[in-house]
């Protein structure tokens, strides 16, 4: 895949406060990238810089060969959902979409209707946005961002305020949309388990810079020095080791700490000789565990 976004050595300060320092960041075309980091890490600033509404103090940014501060074209091919949603509260949902459709030069008149239906806003389209719930505003903001079929989608905390059904609907739609249209998506969030199933790669923002970037597989290889496997079985360990590997019992099973994934087969073979195994699960390879490993390594 071709690099769609290339950020090199970007720094930014607001007055005396440095927000970003020497940020390097790449996004391939068609990828969904999760931008992760604690609150105040600078995720929103990165998105603003990529959209050219904030100018970096140093470094270079190239989006499809264009510089964000020198061309309005980037904003014409990008869609964005900001944390505040940026909607006109005294206007109805439909009027908001009609207004932004004009700004983004949308020619397809059926697009608004399609998006209202997709995000289940048809029944509320004539109500003022000020009367919408947070979830409805978020869905309308997403519709606004998708009006012009953008090539790049920037989503800053897109699931904030959504109920579980709404989160599921929005995330699965984003994944399907990405697969069908090849739209590159950059997603900022601190709800890691939501990002895990839909992102192709992750970038970790810590101490004002991107400290790590890669696919989950690449990150696992780099950061998971041991595997904690949770085995549901009728075997009850009598000692603190099993086949020489550290283990702990819990109700209906045990957890075993292994040096690598390859050892899972070894312990299973041995267990299955005399016992039943109901389920086997790696307990420490979720995104949250990797996130804390990365932070631990950086802040050490």
């Amino acid at each position: 895949m071709v690099e769609m976004i290339e950020v090199r050595g970007v720094s930014k300060s607001f007055g005396s406060q440095q927000v970003l320092k020497d940020v390097d960041f790449q996004v391939k075309a068609g990828e969904i990238v999760g931008l992760l980091g604690p609150n105040g890490a600078g995720k929103t600033t990165v998105i603003r810089i990529l959209n050219g509404v904030i100018k970096a103090d140093a470094g270079t940014i190239s989006i499809m060969g264009l510089s964000p501060t020198q061309s309005d074209d980037i904003r014409a091919i990008s869609g964005i959902v900001t944390e505040s949603a940026g909607l006109y509260h005294q206007m109805s949902g439909l009027e908001n979409l009609e207004f932004f459709a004009e700004l983004y030069g949308v020619e397809d008149n059926a697009q608004i209707k399609r998006l209202l239906e997709l995000f289940e806003l048809v029944d509320h389209q004539h109500k003022p946005v000020g009367t919408y719930s947070t979830g409805m505003k978020k869905r309308l903001a997403l519709s606004k961002a998708l009006l012009h079929n953008p090539k790049i989608l920037f989503l800053d905390e897109p699931t904030n305020g959504l109920d579980p059904d709404g989160i599921k609907m929005v995330l699965s739609y984003l994944k399907t949309y990405n697969q069908q249209t090849g739209t590159t998506i950059i997603l900022c969030s601190h709800v890691l388990h939501q990002l895990e199933p839909i992102c192709d790669s992750f970038a970790f923002l810590e101490n004002k810079t991107i400290v790590e970037q890669g696919s989950k597989q690449e990150l696992e290889q780099k950061y998971l020095t041991e595997i904690v496997v949770s085995v549901s079985t009728d075997y009850v360990p009598q000692e603190k080791t099993f086949l020489g590997f550290r283990c702990e019992k819990f109700e209906n099973g045990m957890t075993i700490t292994l040096p690598s994934k390859e050892e899972i087969s070894t312990i299973l073979k041995e267990l299955l000789k005399h016992h039943r195994v109901y389920s086997v699960e790696i307990a420490n390879n979720d995104l949250e565990s990797i996130y804390f490993k990365v932070r631990e390594k950086i802040n050490r």
Partner: peptide, 14 residues
Amino acid sequence: ERRTLESLLFSPVS
């Protein structure tokens, strides 16, 4: 104040 200027500045409007 209503945080809608952000939307205008993020759009392709010069």
